[in-house]
Structures are given as structure tokens and as C-alpha cells.
Design a protein around this nucleic acid. Structure first.
Lengths: 178, 178
DNA sequence: GGTTGACGTGTAAGGATTTACATGTAGTTT
DNA sequence: AAACTACATGTAAATCCTTACACGTCAACC
């Protein structure tokens, strides 16, 4: 259900879009939160049009572009989902899994992997902060910036992952020496 | 592939276990990183036994308990996966998705959702710190504690999530007032 | 005039994941 | 003695997700 909600949220926040645009946006905007390929997005949009959560409109010259708009029913679905007290919170993080397993390697090798991991997080952090800078630059401090909270969370978690990776590497090195 | 690796990692770090124990352990130990139900774990274990990554042994009195042990080949798989620089890092986070969508609600309602979220994380944090206290109590400072790294990461990320939820609620309330 | 790359939509097959169904033992509480 | 909870394993169906296949337009560059 999450993909459906994520798509509705995109449409609600950034206005009518094509499936192609939504796919791009997933890549650029909430890639650290959720991923979806166009092969999953197109059928989902069709299903949502069927159920009345969105409306479709044929647009764009010769290239059969379709523009989707969220309906009131669709907005309701978002609210239902966000406020719904589903105790289950799915979370899957391959980076963290790697970090979890890394102590199984010989200490020096493990530490190296963690340093590498930390570096990767540093790069990601730089990228996220650049996006934040760009967003901040073109909006006022009181503008309601959709996605800003999620971006903030992305930055915070990336910082934690980076620090943790380095601290773990430190610990592994300490243990490796003794 | 990630589930397979996660299971191998569990077996490698905590020794031979039954599918049931692994399922419990997923719940208790890396729930913030990865989830798996027993219905996915049992077939995966069977598949791994087939391919030689683990060995099976029937154990436990009347209750058909099966104990799985990771083989050298299985350990190799872990090392391959951890050190292999697969550029793709899958990540899915429903909490963050909520954060992404929450600005679509009326500010007061949105803030309430975030407070609720924060409380949930506070509860989880208490649970994790209790586990840590128990682990610390029965191990020396230089004992090789594999789970400690993962637990540490869990605590750190939970703290961040809690703070973020509260800060987001603050911001939403601030905006709501103006 | 041809090639390349971005735009644009879709389906098929296979694997991953969740929910529900199904079964049975062992220990503890009422 | 009956009920309840934890232990313990599995399968079936449905859904989600990824990879690969497939088709066609438009604009820019060479």
C-alpha cells in the first residue's frame, strides 16, 4: 500500500504529473526513503485511476503522455494512512545490514569496510546537504516546503550512520590490536 | 538475497539456531534493519541447506526442532556480500514516508501524528536500552560482542528518529500558530 | 540523413514478502 | 481437567518489487 500512498503524496504535493515524471521524482526526491521503478508505477497509476483515487488525462503531443491528478478521495486516502495507527513500521536498509555483518570479517578487513562505508555516507550526506541548500535558496524560511522534513530525516540518519561506521571501525581496530 | 545473508549472519554470529529462534531474533535484534516472518525464513533455510550454505540437524525432544549451522561456504557467502561493492542500496522506511506526507495534513493534526511517532520511538528506545543493559551486565568490556554493534546502531537511529519526530512536531506547531 | 539520448508507456517473468491457513507439543495457570 | 501461552514447523495465495523485454516519439547533434 505504501507505494500507492507515496504516489498520491507526490501528486498532492507537486501537482499533476505523468508516470514518467513520478518515476524521475522517486529517483531524485525520496530515493533514501522509498524506491520504485516505472514498471511498478505505471500499473499502480492505472489501478488508482480505476479506483478513483486519481484522474487521468491524455496530454502531450504525439508521445502518448498521460497526466494524473489526485482526487479528493485520493487525498482522503493519504490522510487515512498517515493518521492511521498501524503499529507496524516496515524498514529495510541494506547499508545497515552490511554494517551489521561486518564484524564477521577479520578485524582489519572489517575496519576497512566500515571506513569505506563511512565514506559512502559522507558522500551521500554531501549530496543531501547540497539538495537542502538548493531548496533553501529558492524558498523563504516560512514557506511550507514539502519534503523538507523527510530530507531533514535523511540527513540526520546519514550522519548517524557515518558516525556509527567510524566508531565501529575504531572499535574493531582497537580490538584488532589487542 | 539480503534475507539469505542476514540469516547466515545470524547463524555465524550467534551459533546454530532453529528457524523459530531466528525468527524471534529478527524481531528482537535487527527489526529496525530488516524484517522477516517465519513463513519466509523456513523456506529460505531449506534452500540454504540444499545449496550447502548451512547444515541441518534434527534436535529437541518431541517438538520437531531443527538446528541449522552455517558452513564454511556459507561464511564465504557473507564475506562476498559484505565486501562486494554492490552500488545498489535498497532502503524502505515507512516512518520517513509518513514524515514526507505529514505536511499534507492540517498543522495541528500533523503535529499530533509526529508526537505519537516520537512516543513510539521513545518506547522502542527504552526497550533497546534495557537489552543493552542486560547484555552489558553479563559480558566483560573486552568480550567480542557481535550484537553490540547492531544494538548500538539501533539505539542511535531510534534516538534520531525520536528527536526528529519531536522537532518536526515543534515546527508544525510553530507554523500552525502563524 | 543517421545516430544518439531523453521522453514516454507498457507487459512478462521471476523472486521477495505478507497474510492466512494448518498442525502439533510442552509447560503453566485456573 | 481445561484453557492458555510459548514452542515449533510448514504451505498456499496474494501482493509487492525487480529485471528484462518491447514499442514508439521528439529534439539535437554530426
Amino acid at each position: 500500500m505504501s507505494l500507492r500512498i507515496a504516489l498520491l503524496g507526490m501528486l498532492a504535493s507537486r501537482g499533476p504529473s505523468s508516470g514518467y515524471e513520478l518515476a524521475k521524482r522517486f529517483e531524485a526526491s525520496i530515493n533514501h526513503i522509498w524506491q520504485a521503478k516505472h514498471s511498478q508505477i505505471y500499473p499502480e497509476l492505472a489501478k488508482m485511476a480505476q479506483s478513483g483515487a486519481v484522474t487521468v488525462e491524455d496530454a502531450g503531443g504525439g508521445r502518448g503522455r498521460k497526466v494524473y491528478t489526485v482526487t479528493e478521495a485520493g487525498r482522503d486516502e493519504i490522510v487515512q494512512w498517515v493518521t492511521g495507527e498501524d503499529p507496524y513500521r516496515s524498514a529495510r536498509n541494506e547499508t545497515a545490514l552490511r554494517g551489521f555483518l561486518v564484524p564477521l570479517l577479520p578485524p582489519d578487513q572489517a575496519a576497512a569496510v566500515m571506513r569505506d562505508e563511512a565514506e559512502r555516507h559522507a558522500e551521500k550526506l554531501a549530496k543531501l546537504e547540497q539538495i537542502k541548500a538548493e531548496v533553501d535558496a529558492r524558498t523563504g524560511p516560512d514557506d511550507p516546503v514539502f519534503g523538507a522534513y523527510a530530507l531533514d530525516l535523511g540527513i540526520r540518519t546519514t550522519i548517524v550512520l557515518q558516525q556509527w561506521a567510524n566508531d565501529t571501525a575504531d572499535d574493531l581496530e582497537r580490538r584488532g590490536r589487542s
